[in-house]
Amino acid sequence: MLHIDRLILQLPHYPHWWRQEWTTCIDALSLHIAPGEVHAVVGASGAGKSLLAAAIMGLLPSAARLEGALHFQATPLTPARQRQLRGRQLALIPQSLSALDPLARSRQQVRWAAQRAGLGRPAAQQRADELLAHYQLSHAATHYPHELSGGMARRVLIAMAQVSNAQLVIADEPSVGLDPTQRDRVLAKLKAIAREGKAVMLITHDLRHALPVADRVTVMYQGRGIETATAQAFRGQGEQLTSPYARSLWQALPDNAFSTQPSVLCQEPAFA
């Protein structure tokens, strides 16, 4: 469904007002996501996860330099195609809850998303109401975004992504700021979307809670894809993981060793 091949992303920055330098934010990253799969992209903040989402959606700042290949359904993702597919075939559940229109009620937000996907107004309305019911949001259908809790707002965003009938859904840190109950609910919804045959890319720093829903996990470190492993590989002492970084990520979890070789913390992991 989505094939990323040796993607390199560079952004300009200005150490002084006049001097421009390039920072490599994504470094030769390769990633393949299949339909029906939840693919987690895990890494520390600043590893380039959110930029990856922006690169796929075509939402990078205009000054960005992009190399490598991006294919969606076996066709290259050009800026024009990204514009055309955004909100239809490609959906992003953004990290920031301010992505909701502050002046629209929940059912309007979802209905608009349905209309963007090509449904007529009555059909869109009906679909929106169905989905709000499905996400246990019927009571909040006439609420404005500021009246929603963090978990409810996140579910509205997921409903919008689902109603657009997108084949690829990218969720950027969907569990941040949610309590455990809400978080589990949101992650379960993403899993359900994947079961319908869609591809879901789950971007998160929270390895532990991504594992139960993810099929495969790509570990990122400083813009590079260190390792892609199945979620089942994260067990025991992490013997099935090939890279030291992924292994120490796993062992650092409080339910596991809650420790790691100090050397791994400092030293840059070998490029897998």
């Binding site: 720093h205 390895l207 990520l249 913390l265």
Partner: peptide, 8 residues
């Protein structure tokens, strides 16, 4: 908000 290694 931190990844496991940073957290640890």
């Amino acid at each position: 908000m931190l990844d496991p290694i940073t957290q640890l």
